[in-house]
């Protein structure tokens, strides 16, 4: 952690650096929260898409169809 932490301190100090409790380097960071969050988003997208297409759209007849 230490070398990365030093690099960060060198590179920049965020506006409220005091709030930073620990420095996490590249290899120690697994964005598990991001994965969890984005999978929730994925589920919402799939469900909303199916609802919009098969309920809102297909159920909104009459619909333009090819000339039979």
């Amino acid at each position: 952690m230490s070398s990365d932490a030093a690099a960060l301190k060198d590179a920049d100090s965020p506006p409220d650096e005091s709030a930073i409790e620990r420095y996490i380097g590249h290899d120690e960071f697994d964005p598990i929260g991001t994965l969890a969050l984005i999978m929730v988003y994925f589920l919402i997208l799939v469900l909303m898409w199916l609802f919009m297409y098969f309920v809102e759209f297909v159920g909104n007849e009459p619909t333009v169809v090819g000339m039979v």
Binding site: P14, E21, R22, P31, G33, T34, L37, I38
Partner: peptide, 21 residues
């Protein structure tokens, strides 16, 4: 969406954040 949220999560964890959410 992934990259930006992960960057925010990195900040949050450095600020002591824990857990999935």
């Amino acid at each position: 969406a992934f990259t930006v949220v992960a960057s925010m999560e990195h900040g949050a964890r450095q600020r002591g954040g824990e857990g999935y959410f």
